[in-house]
Design a protein around this nucleic acid. Structure first.
Lengths: 345, 345
DNA sequence: GATCTCCGCTAAATCGGATTAGCAAGTGCC
DNA sequence: GGCACTTGCTAATCCGATTTAGCGGAGATC
């Protein structure tokens, strides 16, 4: 890309010192004695010439590139992506690192190729991310490397994980309902796990359900039922419609995602039921639509931004990485879809 | 990041040749004579050792890093982002390039810092992207560099632009309505330009309106009115509600974005009007919700993926870049929100 | 037989920094 | 004055490739 950059040799020449001296002066290292006079001459020369070190040359020597690799299966798709990357980008910038973003599409061969590409370019560390919270096994190229798992767990792989605290999220949803007095007529839509559409080992659903049921049990309440459903609007609509058609009259719905909630809203509206007067709805994710719905949806937010931020901060921290699991809290976004419970008729 | 890599010197030693010979054999260059015997010895040694060239060292010498920089103001936010990046990633991978993704947040100082960071790392080219189609002025660091403008135009800046063909999109929306027989009672919501919330110089709205009006005029039809509205669900709801409250009875709505359409749906439902029986709706963007709405929304799609792909392909093509504007077609996604026109009552 | 030309390959320089080894001048101490 | 030490700086290497310059030997030419 064009341009004859100013090199350190240019700076040294202008300052009338050796490249060695220029190097030490510019890096600010104190273990080599440089007089104040020489240092300021070098700094002045560098400033006048608009000198910027060549990161490539530096990397070659130091084996560090001030660069991170972000490897994920799919970067767009639903809840994830954008905000995670933003969080990561922000944290990386704060430490003067740049991010290589890659996408494997779930293909192992592609994955290997990309990881090798990152390693060839001397990335300092790799964030291995999944768009659905599930179990993974990172490629062999990554073994022994500085790696952090984002939104996934890899048993037996020696690396820390950062995942959303889904269990606590389930509890949060349960408590939100209990706080409004709901103890009966509670149904979970899209319950234990995401079915065909999502990859194996997805555990977000399971954990949410576990937390939810735990908190209800402690309060002496329980779920009237769990309706399995894929995690999208279409299926949410279909399953809730079916539930209503079967004659059930839920008082509260715990939907596995905002998309399912969206479908649920449509089904309830069609049945002439209003939210939250007739049915309260609490959900998970906090996608954009949560705020657009009428009434706005109360939902437990996936901490996208925070996940990305934390991943980078951990991996850029110094010292060795311990293989622990960091659970990031999922905050409740209280909006208008939970109403007070009415005495059951 | 740990690991003692195999170097070319290792390969040469094992093959019993000089590093020079190894280099030529591996790069497959033919302008230097290497016997078939030597070449295969080197290739075999490289394979046995699992040799991978150090991209950093290579970049230092060749000034090219097989790397691109992607600079954008905001990477998340609404329509854009995810798919654009995916498109870019795919095209980059096809040419063995990796992508640095950065986000400036619209801050010039941050922007300069990031661009310099990219340049320091020897990126081969930079894609300067905006999330809203508007006019920009790239930072001075980018002048004279290999740059491509994505989703924006920069008058006076010598670089090609890739933008969605908004004018044609407006025509497409108009034709979709005309095809269903609509020639009267057509209103545009969120018309000429995005007001306060979006940055200056956004021209997507203007161009869409121009194309729309042109096509209506040619067919002897015209807009009953243009309602200005911010490009979000909340404002779409408010403006359409107001329109209806003022006694207007539109037969078709052209909404500036799917979010506005979403709000329009809510307002229409509240007024007891059904889509598309009472009111047809055509929109722009093709966000996820377009497919979730009932009835599903007919909308002119922003070609995100294609924009990203094309940007990378152009910038990775060889030869100098010409400062022309490439307009990417916006395809119509026909769904269920346009119904046949009824005779006006 | 001497000179030329190819061939096939290697030595050495280069890219732009970081780092190690070491040198000359100045200071302190006895 | 002599020796040890410190100070401040520089020469030389190294990182791992790419690339230029050039060297012996074989065959061709006259």
């Amino acid at each position: 890309m064009s341009g004859n950059r100013v090199t350190m040799a240019d700076v040294a020449r202008r300052a009338g010192v050796s490249p060695t001296t220029a190097s030490f002066a510019l890096s600010g290292r104190t273990d080599m004695r440089i007089s104040e006079a020489a240092r300021s001459k070098v700094l002045a020369a560098a400033a006048e010439l608009g000198y910027r070190p060549n990161a490539t040359a530096r990397s070659l020597r130091t084996k560090s590139s001030q660069t991170l690799g972000f490897v994920s299966d799919t970067i767009t798709t639903t809840p994830f992506a954008g905000e995670v990357i933003r969080g990561a980008l922000g944290a990386a910038r704060a430490k003067d690192h740049l991010l290589f973003i890659t996408e494997t599409g779930g293909d192992r061969a592609v994955e290997s190729g990309l990881v090798n590409g990152l390693l060839d370019r001397q990335v300092d560390a790799v964030i291995y991310a999944a768009m659905y919270t599930h179990y993974v096994s990172p490629p062999p190229e990554l073994h022994g490397r500085r790696v952090l798992l984002l939104n996934c767990l890899a048993p037996g792989f020696d690396a820390p994980s950062v995942i959303p605290d889904e269990i606590e999220a389930g509890r949060t949803a349960g408590r939100a309902l209990l706080a409004a007095g709901h103890t009966a007529g509670i149904w979970a839509i899209g319950g234990h796990q995401a079915i065909p559409a999502t990859p194996d080992g997805v555990f977000a659903g399971l954990e949410r359900m576990r937390g939810l049921q735990e908190v209800l049990r402690e309060a002496g309440a329980r779920l009237d039922g769990v309706v399995e459903s894929d995690w999208n609007a279409e299926d949410g609509y279909r399953e809730v419609s079916r539930l209503l058609a079967e004659g059930h009259r839920p008082r509260a719905l715990v939907c596995s995602t905002d998309r399912v909630s969206f479908g649920a809203y449509q089904a309830l509206a069609e049945a002439g039921l209003s939210v939250p007067q007739d049915v309260s709805v609490v959900s998970f994710d906090d996608q954009d639509i949560a705020g657009w719905l009428k009434p706005a949806l109360t939902t437990v937010a996936l901490p996208h931004h925070e996940l990305g931020r934390k991943a980078v901060e951990l991996i850029l921290g110094d010292g060795p990485l311990r293989a622990e699991t960091h659970r990031v809290p999922m905050p409740l976004r209280e909006r208008d879809s939970i109403g007070p419970a009415r005495p059951t008729g």
